[in-house]
Design a protein around this nucleic acid. Sequence first.
DNA 1: CGTTAAACGGATGACACATTCCATTTACGG
DNA 2: CCGTAAATGGAATGTGTCATCCGTTTAACG
Lengths: 205, 205
Amino acid sequence: MRADARHNRERILRAAREAYAVRGIDVPVTTIARRAGVAAATLYRHFPTRAALINEAFAEQFAHCVAALDEALADPDPWRGFCSVIEKVCAMQATDRGFTGAFLTQFPDAIDYDSERTRAEDGIAELVRRAKDTGQLREDFDPTDITLLLLANCGVVEGSQQVSPAASRRLVTYLLQSFRAGHAEPLAPPAPLELHQIHQPARRH
Amino acid sequence: MRADARHNRERILRAAREAYAVRGIDVPVTTIARRAGVAAATLYRHFPTRAALINEAFAEQFAHCVAALDEALADPDPWRGFCSVIEKVCAMQATDRGFTGAFLTQFPDAIDYDSERTRAEDGIAELVRRAKDTGQLREDFDPTDITLLLLANCGVVEGSQQVSPAASRRLVTYLLQSFRAGHAEPLAPPAPLELHQIHQPARRH
DNA sequence: CGTTAAACGGATGACACATTCCATTTACGG
DNA sequence: CCGTAAATGGAATGTGTCATCCGTTTAACG
């Protein structure tokens, strides 16, 4: 592979990550090409399709999420692990408008996402169980409340633009305090809110 | 005005409200016309522009919000008023995907929204102050946390589709429990999150 | 019944975007 | 240095979606 080609490939990926982070997943490929300082055709030489570009651009971040969960599971204090993974993932959402907010909702069928997802769901279920066992997480907490929180965070991130990180942190703090066991009337049973049924991009007509 | 014209006008408004409620503010006027059983041109005879239709369609709901706030202010128990107005508005968001989620964020300059908004903000500030005075609302609560909650609710509503109302209620319950005074470490000062700086529809290059 | 507002269906035109064609440039092995 | 294949850029191409309007037909109402 020629040196300039490899170089451009990197530039494109960097530009894509930046653009997606700031403006969300909807930025046109044309824009990304321009920001990368190359022509659209060049971008297409490296990534045959829009989706391919997106997949590559987010692969790294996705790995970070998985890692965060693994670390949480490795933490001897399940509550601390629980908080930490939530805080990390939400911070990622807040920092990168494209990630989760758009990726998980608009590309549920991208990549080999499915196998990763069930693994993630199992890990979360395990973490929740342990945190309840130590009495730190309220008994009426439901694993789908994580989805609830992610969606809520998503809304805050989309809406607050400039101050996303701070706003997101504040929301997460409020919610984690509410998740903490001990001080609150119990909740009604939750709505079934599975990750895979989130926001199928509104079908037209 | 001819009888059938008035009749169609009503049909159009009803169709618009339904469509916006279910699918959000983005439904094409063409679709609304079809659902109303009229041709697009007919719709344009009644509402000269897309925005005009939207304004009329949501006027009623907007009034409901204002009313909810007035009721809350009239309640002798400020905390109950506080909860009730939040619950009502969030339920409205959950029931009607178009309202707030799209209206407040995509049409910040529609109608005479500004005067209403400041009045609403003043009312909320007053309510918050009273609820703190009675010691029921935590001291480090900030009026902009209402915005935070609305955005969070917005995210949940957008994401959870079929089960929006239940999911929204659950989120609100969690957050209200967290807002309640007494049991939590204080929060860091909030990010400035004013209603009017929300989600200026992403400007295209 | 005639008049005329109202409604209809099918344009029209604008826009945004993914993707591709082909002439030109450029890296780099010899 | 030079030749060549790889890489690139600029301008198309094609598609889809919409808001909005035109000329004709329908039917309400006096």
